[in-house]
Amino acid sequence: MEDEKMMGDVYAVYLRELIRLWRQKVRLVTTIVMPLLWLGVIGNAFNNAFKMPFKGDFLSFLTPGILVMTMVFTSTISGITTVFDREFGFLKEMLVAPIKRESILIGKMLGGVTQAILQGVIIIILAIIMGVNFKGVAAIPGMLLTMFLVSIAFVSFGLAVASKMTSMEGFQMVMNFLIQPMIFLSGAFYPTKMLPSWLKIGVKLNPLTYGVDAMRYFAIGINEFNVVIDLMVMIVLSIVFILLGGYLFRKS
């Protein structure tokens, strides 16, 4: 009975997120311009310029990386906007309703994850049109799982950051000093083998490396680490960020 009630509450919060998402469908399309530029321009340019140190073309190599990048950006931003809901008052409406704080949190997280995965799916379709060779239908479940793990982790990360943040400048800081380096050091854009050894340390310490590796494994069958380790890292990262984000959000 209690669980059923909570499901209903989560759904109410989530439903609102879905309606908002639907109303902003134009924005959903415009925000994938950036990843498309990466694929269409950089992908195609480098495709002809370099020979990859393994089988396959650069465009197919790059696509999983761009997918992860998109997940990270979209999820972080949606986590952050959750906190800005507070400024727009609707959060108050939910806080005074007879529902658990957890329901609000879960509903909101699922909303962010849905948005990120929708964008991911659009990118996958466009990549197929551009001629990227995925592993076929078998690639889909693994890619969705990886997308889910990356986005839930970074929605929570966004929540955690925004709960401690007071201004939009703080948001720029986080993007420039945390998110961007994480993406650049994740092997999203290039094979990490090509890096000098001192940079490789950064790559290995970066949890996102394992997300990109898992995505690439599921999408095109190329990987550097054991995919089980990849997924373990992502699951641990998700749990840590969910707990941290949940804790900071409740406290703020």
Binding site: K5, L15, R16, I19, G89, F90, E93
Partner: peptide
């Protein structure tokens, strides 16, 4: 029921949707 001093509607939702979500939140 409470009407806050500061606005707390979701202005991207319709009037009906705002009320419907509210009804759901109150089971």
């Amino acid at each position: 029921g409470i009407v806050f001093q500061d606005p707390s509607l979701d202005d991207r939702l319709t009037a009906r949707e705002n009320l419907d979500i509210h009804g759901r939140l109150y089971h």
